[in-house]
Structure formats: C-alpha cells, structure tokens
Computed example of a mutant assay.
Amino acid sequence: MELGEFLRARRARISPGDAGVRDYGGRRRVPGLRREELARLAGISVPYYTRLEQGRNHNASDSVLDAVARVLRLNADERAHLYRLARGNGAAEPERLRPSVRVMIESMTDVPALVMGRRTDVLVWNRLAHALLAPHLDFAAPQDVNLARLVFLDQHTRRLYVDHERKKRDAVAHLRMVAGAYPGDRGITDLIDELSALSKDFVTLWSEYPVRNCASNTREYDHPVVGRLTLTDELMLLPDDEGQRVVVYTAATGSSSASALAALVHHLVS
C-alpha cells in the first residue's frame, strides 16, 4: 500500500534520539522509529496506527493525521501527501486539453512554455520549449513526449541538465505526489513500472520516497545551441483541469541567460 510505504519510509528517517525516545541499547529490527514508539508520541493506540499504516483506516481524523505528521516532522508537501493517501482519493477523470489553453501556449513566443499532464506527458508546447528541452524530437508530436521518461532514459536530456541528479530526484518526488493523488490512474502505474524496469537510478530514488511539489525551480542548462543558461521554471496548476500544469521558463532580466534565451529565439526564426 502506498500509504504504508510512505509512513515506513518516514519512520525510518527519524532516529529515536531525535524524537526524544530513550534508547536502552540492543539491536533494533527496524531503522528509525518503531510503530509503537510513533503511536505513543502521537497519542494514539498501536492497533489504530497499525491499521492506518496498512491502509485499513480511511476515516482518520485531521487531529490524528496532524499528530502523525508532527512526530514524523513532515514538511508542507509531505503533509499534503499524507492527507491524500489517508483519504483514499479515487481515480481522476480522463485527461483532455482545453483548446483555449492550447492557444494560450502557442501564442507565447518569447519564453518556453508547455502544459504538463498529471502523468508528466507534454500535452502541448510552444516552439521555444521544444527547442530548449527536446529539439531532437518531433515538435508536431508532443503527445509522444513524457518528461519523466526523458529525464531517466534520454541521453540528450541527461546532457541538458547540469545537475542531472537533482532533476532526477525532483522527477521522482513529483511522481510520488501524483501517484498518491491519483491511485486509480493506470497510466501513472504503467509509467512507474516502465521506469522501474529500465532505470536502476529510478528504482533507487523511488525506494527513498522523496516528496516535493516542485512548483518553482531554478536550474542550469547546457544547451547544444546557446550553451550555458540558468532558467527558473514556474509550474501553475490549471484549476479546471485536474492535475494539469502550465510550465513557463524565464531568465533574470538583463542576465547572460536572458541573452542566451533571446539567441535561441533568433535561432528558431533564422
């Protein structure tokens, strides 16, 4: 169960000493906190917490979840993830791109922009986003492009991100969040299975269970046409389109990265 996997990973991260639990020595069977230790610190019974960790309690109160989050020292993204897993959300509606959103993205010509679906598929991108992220792929077929798949399986993408290790971790952190938000989405499950079969790095990071919303990121790129540039990507949820995000990449005004981005625009029109 996804909830149990998350809670066990976070229990393993908290040492007894950090939680204020007296350790009388001896060999511990599990790293971090035991179930009974967490339950005691959270003020709940061990059987109740065990049912929660096993995914057999979908009626946990906010006060219980808050207590567990406090003991596990969850950040805001992890706390939201815990609530989604504990509430057992159902499958999302089929994913469709609104025509007006497509027009919006295609009308943006000075900054790279795209719409990423909940499975990290590119639903639409503009010319500049294609030129920045994947000029080796067919611009006319964004439906064949999956951003998480590129990060782990594509050699061009591996060279593009200067800190590729951080990008991989962020990709897994995002997939962990959407897998918890849409547990019935077969497409997400298939993507995770595919990456697990083809990438040892993915398997390692997935087992570490990072969770992060990744709503704003500043990254350095090593682009084959314009060289090094630093861009900030902002991911904005579309409120009427479940799980879809508009992604826009910008450079600091007057910076060498802004000049490099302008050079990429010029490269496209020349």
Rank of each mutant, 00 (worst) to 15 (best):
A173P: 01
V172P: 03
L205F: 09
R186G: 07
R166N: 11
T157H: 06
D163M: 05
D201P: 13
G184W: 11
G187Q: 06
M177K: 01
R158H: 09
D193M: 04
H174W: 04
A173C: 04
T204F: 07
R176C: 07
T204C: 09
L175Y: 02
Q155T: 10
G184T: 09
I188W: 00
A179Y: 09
R169A: 01
D190V: 04
M177C: 02
T157C: 15
S199E: 13
D190K: 08
G187A: 15
T189A: 14
S196Y: 05
S196P: 11
K200P: 11
S196E: 15
R166D: 08
A173G: 01
M177T: 02
A179V: 08
V178Q: 05
D201K: 14
S196A: 12
R158P: 02
D190T: 06
L195R: 08
A173M: 01
D185T: 10
I188Q: 00
L175D: 00
E165T: 12
T189Y: 09
G180D: 03
R186K: 08
D193F: 09
R166E: 13
I188K: 00
M177W: 06
Y161R: 04
F202M: 15
L205N: 13
V178N: 03
K167W: 03
G180H: 10
D185E: 12
D185V: 05
F202V: 10
H164E: 03
V203N: 10
L160R: 02
I192F: 14
A171T: 15
L175G: 02
T204W: 11
R158S: 05
M177G: 04
S196F: 11
E194P: 01
A173H: 01
G184D: 13
A173W: 02
A171C: 03
V172M: 11
R166V: 12
R158E: 14
R169E: 00
G184S: 13
D190W: 05
E194A: 01
E165G: 07
R166C: 02
I192W: 13
T204K: 14
V172Y: 11
R159I: 11
L205S: 05
A197G: 06
A197E: 08
R169Q: 00
G184I: 06
S199F: 10
T157L: 05
D185I: 04
K167Y: 01
D201T: 14
L198D: 14
T204L: 04
L191P: 01
L175I: 14
K200N: 09
K200V: 15
V203D: 14
L191S: 03
V172D: 02
V162F: 05
G180T: 02
L205D: 07
A179H: 15
S199V: 07
L195A: 11
I192G: 13
L195H: 12
A173L: 02
L205P: 09
R176M: 07
K200G: 13
A171D: 00
G184L: 08
L175P: 09
D170S: 07
H156L: 03
A179K: 06
L191M: 03
K167H: 06
H156K: 08
E165N: 03
T204Y: 13
A181Q: 09
D201C: 06
L175C: 07
K168W: 08
T204P: 15
G184E: 14
Q155N: 08
H164T: 06
S199D: 13
S196R: 12
K167S: 02
T157V: 10
D185G: 05
R159G: 08
A171V: 03
R186C: 06
K200E: 06
M177I: 14
I192V: 12
H174S: 13
I188D: 01
G180F: 03
L191K: 04
